[in-house]
């Protein structure tokens, strides 16, 4: 047994603090900017001298940020949901069945995940324009599903592989149809994996900028990250820093809420007791 000395504890605490600060200072900085009055942006103080929520009010009232935010939520939620449903079935097949082309399918999905999205934007722009998907929700949902599926299939299949196959055989013997066995035994056990994967997929869709900016032209489908790029000040000489900071804080909030809600469900060891040991 390793004895943790006070000295080790102290050095670990220091290291942890440095890492935490490194990660959090930019976020706090943005928060600080979003709360500053326009005149004090450049005063160099980390803690704002003049506090105001005007930036937040502005982006919704003047900047029209409401619609992009709704687009973001709607598109990300739908894309995540579809990707999870398809991904669960696909992962289940990969984890459980031996079918021809299984390796090819896994390889292909990995290839998609690796593919630089930038190189696809131009052809997709052309395709979507010609089939009328350009600047619509489905026009963004489709590529999002495509690019989150490899992630979902990979993570979920490794989760499903951990679930003892005998549970499913037992369910069959107990009189379950294959779907009942899947629905009542496998899915509840895979829930932590599904939730974790859903959060990852949601974050991926939520954060996307490349597709959002290229495949939309108006607020009817433009998502929040893309909308931020189009922020302008009140006049052409005014810097939209405050609005951008406020919007950045706003789009961080759903992610934080998402993780806070689901972190309790992301518990490991739910399968303990299923089999021996």
């Amino acid at each position: 047994m390793a004895v943790v000395t006070t000295r080790q504890k102290a050095s670990w605490s220091v290291a942890n603090t440095i890492v935490a600060l490194y990660a959090l200072i930019p976020v706090l900085w943005i928060l600080s900017l979003s709360l500053k009055e326009k005149s004090t942006f450049t005063d160099g103080h980390f803690i704002p001298r003049g506090w105001t929520f005007q930036n937040f009010v502005d982006i919704f009232q003047v900047g029209g940020f409401t619609r992009p935010l709704l687009n973001s939520i709607g598109i990300a939620v739908i894309a995540t949901f579809v990707a999870i449903v398809i991904g669960t079935f696909a992962a289940y097949a990969i984890a459980r069945l031996d079918f021809p082309g299984k390796k090819l399918m896994l390889g292909a999905s990995l290839l998609i995940a690796m593919f630089p999205q930038v190189s696809l934007v131009t052809p997709m722009f052309q395709v979507e324009r010609s089939i009328g998907l350009f600047n619509t929700w489905p026009g963004l949902i489709l590529p999002y599903i495509t690019f989150t599926l490899p992630l979902t299939i990979y993570t979920l299949s490794s989760f499903l592989r951990e679930i003892p196959w005998e549970l499913e055989k037992a369910a069959k013997m107990d009189g379950a149809t294959p779907f009942q066995a899947f629905r009542q035994v496998i899915v509840p056990l895979a829930m932590p994996g599904v939730v974790t994967t859903a959060i990852l997929a949601f974050i991926q869709c939520w954060n996307d900028f490349v597709f959002a900016i290229s495949l939309t032209s108006t607020n009817s489908a433009r998502t929040a990250p893309a909308a931020i790029a189009f922020f302008t000040g009140a006049s052409q000489f005014e810097d939209p820093t405050g609005s951008i900071a406020a919007a950045a804080i706003v789009i961080t909030i759903p992610i934080i809420i998402f993780v806070l809600i689901f972190q309790r469900r992301i518990v490991s060891g739910l399968t303990s007791g299923a089999v021996k040991g």
Partner: peptide, 20 residues
């Protein structure tokens, strides 16, 4: 005939209890 229609019960080596 599918397992569920054979009306046979099985005890597995690993017990295969549903942990949830």
């Amino acid at each position: 005939v599918a397992p569920r229609d054979r009306d046979i019960a099985m005890v597995f080596q690993s017990y295969a209890l549903y942990p949830h």
